[in-house]
Design a binder for these strands. Structure first.
Lengths: 335, 335
DNA sequence: ATCAAATTTGCAAACGATTGTTACAAATTG
DNA sequence: CAATTTGTAACAATCGTTTGCAAATTTGAT
């Protein structure tokens, strides 16, 4: 281990005491400019770097946020829906902007996250990114609604958790208008609307409402939650075709499902967008590369990161949660 | 702040001294079973959770690894090549298996990473995942070859850094055999082979060597590194078509480029895989959803994470680097 | 019963910072 | 010029652990 310079060493060289070094470096007003200059120079000369662990121990805060990605059971980190990685990237940017470090962890079951991060003083707060609808995973957090616990989540199945979400209902409306605008008369929703996935339900609600206003009905194909998102899309198209039900537009609850839909349609010889229009939700990168490229509703990732971080910081300081809806936008591509 | 239980509180309740609590909980052999049981129970009853910061301060180690994703300049975190997210996920899994925490950061310029993480005792070592070929970003690490500095990187443009990489040459050979096996007579390589991207060069070398053994030549289309990976593919196909050069197989240096190739071919009315076979490298998820789905060479992500973590841990303990090549595998899809 | 060798436990000193209180000098006031 | 205020830096305590060393206890052999 390399020789380590402490504040004490700096103090010696500057001819002051160690606490004065601390004050000088932290910009305390009760240290003269002259002394501060001496300290700064000594620190510079010795290559002093503060030991964050000492600061953290003393201050009782870590300037670190933990991000936990709760995957679907049995899903490896590499199989995670890429949407969540985009979210992670945004959170990282937002946290960095506020001077916070980010501790990340992938988990497929809840476990004692707080014991590990919050209680152990490894993080001041936690952002839970839930890619699962497994109620057990969330039950843990539901039991953790202690006012002192600073956490916020994305993807919670229920309203009684501290969530940040997309403007799902508005997104659903946009999707409906997109299909209407393209002259579709038989739009269908595909997704686990009635499942634990609260966000999907919201998307459907906005979608159905807007269609209703245009005098159209909004049938939904329920899917098996045990399948992967993509397979859900493939499966739903199969169901749709077998039912003989007419359809010329599809709004998929998420992009992965939409990609499955695209593939299934292609394999059934149904051309997109000629015979059927397809629109997804999430704005994942893979949507750029499908054939045809996937039209989708994309949340503002930057704001998503900001809101997640801002809200958890609010929890830490005891302030109420701020706005929690992330605006979405139509991304017109080829489907 | 909630009331916090310390080892001292546990000691009081168990009727022993605090250091004994520490010993009992850390599994020291010099504590009787009876005492240990008492301590364990008291800790349980009080809901004791150790304060990691105190441990870290005292021990001088953090049990934390920092992962820095160096993006292409101006690239936001959400625009990062998804391959690196898969890598991140694998690293997270490997680190967790070894009991290490992961501190992640996205950066688009080198900056003083070590001052921030290593020197400040926030991490014991660092894994640099470089998505950029910008020599300046890497120059920083080249200047940091101090024996005490524990870091390892993925994606380094040069051999003189502490890298872990895919078996690129072997992958290139596999790609060549794939095209040969499909009867292709005019295979072409597309990618920034001669640029700073060392890995691409290795892929080409293996590819060219294998083709040579089959009596075929291996022309390469150089691309403009300032373009996005996907645009590089689009651009290269354009160049290829304009040149009038015959081609019936394409090996793209990475999947994103391959997806660009696929799109460009599709837009030019050239059918894949009928007229041209395309194979990529990386195994990104988006390749599943392209049309046709992209055949590719996929590194073993799990091993990639393991090797990165293992090697940086070796650096920490002063041991030499272990094996640093990640095996790859052909993933046959539809292109 | 006696004593040396093992076991266990306690004591006290770190680890490297932050921060409330105190002490001193210089500056201000009457 | 004495009395009071202000600015600056020192002192000392503290955050919650780990760990070397000494002390106390138990064990086992004589």
């Amino acid at each position: 281990m390399a020789f380590r310079v402490t504040a004490f060493d700096v103090a010696q060289r500057a001819g002051v005491t160690q606490p004065t070094v601390s004050r000088a470096l932290n910009g305390s007003p009760k240290v003269s400019d002259e002394t501060r200059a001496k300290v700064l120079q000594a620190a510079q000369e010795l290559g002093y770097v503060i030991n964050q662990n000492a600061t953290r121990l003393r201050r009782g805060e870590t300037m670190t946020l933990a991000v936990v990605l709760i995957g679907r059971a049995g899903e490896s980190a590499t199989e995670t829906n890429p949407f969540y990685f985009s979210l992670l990237g945004s959170v990282a940017a937002a946290a960095a902007a506020k001077g916070y470090n980010l501790l990340v962890s992938f988990q497929d079951s809840p476990g004692n996250f707080f014991g590990q991060y919050d209680d152990a003083r490894q993080a001041d707060g936690m952002i839970v990114i839930g890619t699962t609808q497994n109620p057990e995973a969330w039950a843990y957090f539901r039991g953790l609604d202690h006012p002192d616990k600073a956490w916020v989540c994305w993807g919670a199945p229920d309203d009684d958790l501290r969530w940040v979400r997309s403007e799902n209902e508005g997104g659903g409306r946009i999707a409906a208008r997109y299909l209407i605008e393209r002259g579709r008369k038989h739009p269908v929703f595909i997704g686990a609307r009635a499942s634990q996935q609260r966000q999907f339900g919201e998307r459907y609600d906005g979608f159905a409402e807007e269609l209703r206003m245009a005098g159209l009905s909004a049938p939904a194909i329920e899917v098996d939650e045990s399948l992967s998102r993509e397979e859900q899309g493939v499966e739903a198209v199969r169901t749709l075709l077998q039912s003989g039900q007419p359809f010329d537009g599809i709004f998929a609850a998420c992009d992965l499902t939409a990609l499955g839909v695209l593939r299934a349609l292609s394999e059934s010889g149904i051309s997109v967008p000629e015979r059927v229009s397809v629109i997804g939700f999430d704005g994942i990168r893979a949507g750029n590369y499908s054939s045809p490229p996937l039209t989708t509703i994309e949340p503002d990732f930057e704001q998503a990161g900001d809101l997640l971080v801002q809200n958890v910081l609010n929890r830490i300081s005891g302030e109420p949660l701020t706005h929690r809806r992330v605006p979405v936008q139509l991304v017109r591509r080829g489907s």
